[in-house]
Design a protein around this nucleic acid. Sequence first.
RNA 1: GGGGAGGUGGCAGAGCGGUCAAUCGCAGCAGGCUGUAAACCUGCCGCCCUUGUGGCUACGGAGGUUCGAACCCUCCCCUCCCCA
Length: 411
Amino acid sequence: MTSSFRFTLHGTDGAARRGELQTPHGVVQTPAFMPVGTQGTVKAALHRDVRDAGAEIILGNTYHLFLRPGDELIARRGGLHAFIGWNRPILTDSGGYQIFSLAARRVIREEGAEFQSHLDGSRHVLTPERAVDIQARLGSDVAMVLDECLSYPASRDDAARSMQLSLRWARRCRERFTGLRAGRSRSAHVDGPSSTAWAGSRHDPTADGKDVQVSNPGQAQFGIVQGGVFQDLRDESAAGTVQTGFEGYAIGGLSVGEPVEVMYAITEQTARQLPVDRPRYLMGAGTPEDLVESVARGIDMFDCVMPTRNARNGQLFTSEGRINIKNARYAEDDRPLDPACGCYTCRHHSRAYLRHLYLAGEMTAGALNTLHNLTFYLDTMRRIRDAIAFRTFDTFRQGFLRSASRLSLDS
RNA sequence: GGGGAGGUGGCAGAGCGGUCAAUCGCAGCAGGCUGUAAACCUGCCGCCCUUGUGGCUACGGAGGUUCGAACCCUCCCCUCCCCA
């Protein structure tokens, strides 16, 4: 069943890798940036525009889609791809990040993470097995194991304890995943939309109620290395995760507030311990500079809300630095956001107009800004791929950092 | 002409003797955002400065009462509403 997922390494330039990810819903060129579409949509963007901007794969989120509209409902609609109308690769995050971002609303136990819904307060236990089942029902091309995304700073003891828990969860996830793949697909009880029962108490998956098949044909599963900022813990986590065996490997728990040098160092050391023939995914990163720096350290895949969220909040990324479109200096600036950009926004609108739209609270501000930032990120990835292919990555990297690291543009 | 209401920082609008340089909101200025509870959040927002339990000038104008007034009194100026 693994035949529909394959990673091919085309070439390298230093530690940077040029490759290709084959999934049931199509091919993804790597290094790749994956726009985040938490709730089945990249916020403020149409799928068409996300695609036209150059995205070959997007993210979805297990936790959010489980709560609303529900994985069972999505399965009945034919799976996530059919439901949202995106017939290309999708990677689903497991909900591990919500263990971090919704820390105040959950408790972690060996069994799993017990959440109180941010929507209605109802309680749910997300276990490793459940995270696998939900993602199987969603039918994503790549599923992530459930992990604990540790917050920063954390003590060594906490980081070690957390990393061990993530490792145990990863093994449980893999066991469940291979069980489904082996054809021991099982039907699961359909949760009523108003169900407030805890997952842990729904012990009998064949209980009465409408059944939905749980299987994961063609789906890949990625393990996640944790360990905070302690390299020896990262080493241990990497070894244990690789030993468990996954189609790809992610580095999680970074870009959560630690200094960038630390993030880069951990990324570099950890990437070295991952199998050469499997994709490496740095979760949650990052800034444009983070992308370039991490590719230089052997990373193949990224996702980050930064281009989309910051776009909605008025921060635009350009080839010459960042623009805060709210700033008064752009009030009468007739230039496009980025003269070097060919996106719809840059081809049609001035900074002055975009500033007006933003300050007026118009929805088109978020849409136009999102389109631009996504284009910038995806263009950057394309340039990265080309540079690796031509073995000029280091030159590209130096030039990119020199221009893009300026904090803001001068008028 | 008669009667009534009111004039507070860019707007709007509280305050109605001291704890007021003046609530809240909007607007404005700037910053933040990294596997999305985010079209969100934070700070500043009379003037000056070494930014502070700092200095100065302030609540239509001019006087007055008081230890002390945006808040009370007098006169003036100006808005708005109703009736002629």
